[in-house]
Simulated assay, not measured.
Amino acid sequence: MKDSSRLLSIYYTAGYPQLHSTLNIAQKLEQAGVDFLEIGFPYSDPVADGPVIQRSSEKALQNGMTLDVLFKDLKKLREHVSIPVFLMGYFNPVLQYGVENFCKACKEVGVNGAIIPDLPLYEYEELYQKIFEENEIANIFLVTPQTSEERIRKIDELSNSFIYLLSSNATTGKNLNVNDESEKYFKRIKKMDLKNPIIIGFGISNAETFDKATQYAQGAIVGTAFVRMLDESDYENKIDNFIKNIKRGN
């Protein structure tokens, strides 16, 4: 991750709105000034996602998106995109694909890491850490308001990219609400002075929420608001303005 205090990441679902639109969207996002990307691979039971991202997953699966298709689509990723790219999704499809095959395929196409929220920390450490590290694939861990300091320190020790800080325990798509409780949570994490950058996700949708989040972290992730924009027929022409509006204070 590059050294900056206001990194913007965009999440979107592979295979949505069209089966093979993934790489084109990545190119346009980099051109618009996004710092890194999170490409979601769809799953039939996306329990942590709100309705907008759930719908995009359903549509992507209907379109025919699979990990095989995604890796084929990303074969020319590094000919067109230079910013870091992470794949995000549930562990079940990765397990079915084979963890080693998944990590090797990520390395082959130039993906930097994976965010797999339902892969337990102890399981990663005991069974998969070596595979990820041999293939130079970062595993991104999530921290919630309930995560203990001991566990956060452990996550920081195991991480070599960034730590994904959930703004709340809600599903995706809820607006960021920095109240006294969440402010205490953000300040507590900031005070820990972790070696890995902290990136806040869930609830970031515009310049105001991006500004709020980056008061406490090195960056923030926009997902639902961007996926919603992909519903529009002329979304390709709107990507540039969408990003510039969020990053206007940078």
Rank of each mutant, 00 (worst) to 15 (best):
K2C: 13
K2T: 14
K2A: 12
L8G: 05
S9Y: 03
G15I: 00
Q18E: 12
E30P: 00
E30L: 01
G33M: 01
V34K: 00
F36C: 09
L37V: 10
F41T: 00
F41G: 02
Y43E: 06
Y43D: 03
Y43C: 02
Y43F: 04
D45F: 14
D45R: 10
Q54Y: 08
E58N: 12
E58C: 10
A60L: 00
N63L: 01
M65L: 12
V69N: 14
V69I: 15
K72C: 04
D73N: 09
K76Y: 13
K76V: 13
L77E: 02
R78N: 08
E79R: 08
I83C: 03
P84I: 07
N92W: 13
L95W: 09
Q96A: 10
G98C: 00
K104W: 11
A105L: 05
C106A: 02
V109F: 03
A114V: 03
I115N: 06
Y122V: 11
E123N: 13
E125A: 07
Y128E: 02
Y128W: 05
Y128H: 08
I137C: 03
N139R: 09
F141Q: 04
V143F: 06
T144R: 10
T144F: 06
P145N: 06
T147Q: 12
S148Q: 14
E149W: 08
E149D: 09
E150K: 11
E150C: 08
E150S: 10
E150V: 09
K154F: 02
N160E: 08
F162V: 03
L166D: 01
T171I: 13
N179E: 09
F186Q: 09
K187N: 10
K191P: 11
D193G: 13
N196W: 08
S205Q: 07
N206P: 06
N206T: 08
N206V: 01
A207Q: 12
E208P: 12
D211Y: 11
A213D: 10
Q215K: 10
Q218P: 02
G223N: 04
R228H: 11
R228A: 15
Y235D: 00
I239Q: 03
R248T: 14
G249C: 15
N250F: 14
